[in-house]
Simulated assay, not measured.
Amino acid sequence: MKTHLYYYIAIVCIILGTSCTSGQKQHATEEHTSIQKENVATQPDKAQFPFPDIPVMLTEPEERREFLLAHYWDNFNFSDTTLLNNRDITEQGFVNHISLLADGESSSQEITKSLDALCSHIEQQREACKTFMHLFDEYLYNPNSPLYNEALYLVYLNRMLQSKTIDDATKSTLAFKQKLISRNQPGTLASDFTYYLPNGQASKLHQTPASNNRLLLIFYDPECPSCHEIMQDMLHDQTLADAVTDGKLTVLAIYTEGNPEAWRSDLSNLPANWMVGTDREAIKLNALYDLKAMPSLYLLDGNKKVILKDAPYARIRAALHF
Rank of each mutant, 00 (worst) to 15 (best):
H228P: 00
T82L: 14
Y8K: 12
A41M: 08
L152R: 00
E127P: 02
L161I: 13
S296C: 15
K164D: 15
G17A: 02
D266G: 00
N158M: 08
T59V: 12
V251W: 04
Y255P: 08
E138G: 01
M275I: 15
P186I: 01
A262I: 11
R280K: 14
L235K: 10
M231N: 14
Q238V: 09
K284I: 12
L197C: 01
M160R: 10
K164V: 09
P55A: 07
L299S: 01
D233S: 05
Q125G: 00
K248P: 03
L240W: 03
Q24G: 09
Q201L: 07
Y141T: 04
F219W: 06
D221P: 03
L180G: 04
K2N: 11
G93I: 11
L249R: 03
Q162W: 02
S296F: 03
G200V: 05
A318V: 02
Y313N: 02
L5Q: 14
S120P: 04
H321Q: 14
I9F: 08
G258D: 15
Y141K: 07
A311N: 02
E66P: 01
A318C: 00
E127N: 08
Q26D: 14
Y148M: 04
A28R: 13
L320K: 04
K25L: 12
F94P: 07
K292A: 13
A319V: 06
